[in-house]
Simulated scan of single mutants.
Amino acid sequence: MSDEIIDSQETAFGKVEVLQYPALSGSSDARSAESLFYVSQAGMRLKKVRITLPAKSSKVRFEPGALYYMHGDLEIKASTGGGLMRGLARKAFTGESLFVNEIHGRGVIYLEPTFGHFLLVDLDDDEITVDKTMFYAGLGDLTIGASINRTVAGLAGGEGFFQTKISGTGIAVLFSPVPMSEVQVFELNNDKLSVDGNFALMRTKGVDFSVEKSSKSWVATSVSGEGLLQTFKGTGTVWIAPTQGVYDKLATPSGLSELAGPPGARSTNT
């Protein structure tokens, strides 16, 4: 059985596809087979990203260690992604690597497989701000930098002072904590979105991020049980992952028992 294409984006720069393996069943090691059984029962599937470059002038950049294999007239080059100072700032502020690998030429590239999830975002002279370490690869003319959260909004909201900013034209490949089917997309038109927790994945240019009280007064906020809310205002798109906190709790020893309790008795913060 061939790999299944579960997501795809194509531009003049090339094509990016997310491939999903059929159920794995070839292990000759009993311990590996046991792990594969539980992974299969949970519905998890191994995935990898395939990138097709159509011309010698084409290029894709990706995080170090992400390359799996490639075929064609292709050459790997190391880059700071816009200069040494930009690379140092990206590493210091966002957690991304100082050096990024670029592959130039014509051919097909496969990136390392994972049981995790990928989001493909098509940018057309646009800009998105994403959680730190989400950037995995970029096809086309993209710039990766740092976005500064104003005042103490990022620290109070759990995002930190810096996030990753991706701008330009091309396809951004992002590593996601949840599958795309569990991501909710909100289109804001001079509107406001409030989130109780830090499970907002990304936002487009034109949407401002801040942290606000859940009620008008500090007294009401302190007794409401909601505390501070991540707030997104403006015109643009916001992606959130409501199930992210559920998976994080399930990974803890007491997570299942907490999730079995009344919803109001647990926090949605991750």
Rank of each mutant, 00 (worst) to 15 (best):
M1W: 03
D3C: 03
D7T: 00
S8Q: 13
T11R: 03
T11K: 05
K15M: 10
Y21T: 02
A23W: 14
D29E: 12
D29M: 12
A30R: 07
S32G: 10
G43E: 07
V49D: 01
L53P: 00
S58Y: 11
K59A: 03
G65L: 08
G72V: 06
L74I: 15
L74M: 14
E75A: 12
K77F: 04
K77C: 03
A78T: 15
G95N: 15
G95Q: 09
F99G: 01
R106L: 10
E112N: 09
V121M: 06
T129G: 10
G138D: 14
L139E: 04
L139G: 02
D141N: 15
D141P: 04
D141K: 13
S147L: 01
S147Q: 05
N149L: 09
A153L: 00
L155D: 14
A156G: 06
F161E: 05
Q163F: 00
K165P: 00
A172D: 05
A172I: 07
P177S: 11
V178S: 00
S181C: 06
V183D: 04
F186G: 00
E187R: 10
N190P: 00
L193I: 07
D196S: 13
D196M: 10
G197Y: 07
F199R: 04
V207D: 06
D208F: 04
E212Q: 15
T221K: 10
S224V: 08
L229D: 05
G236Q: 06
A241N: 13
T243G: 12
D248E: 15
A251Y: 12
A251N: 11
S257D: 15
A260G: 08
G261K: 04
G261Q: 05
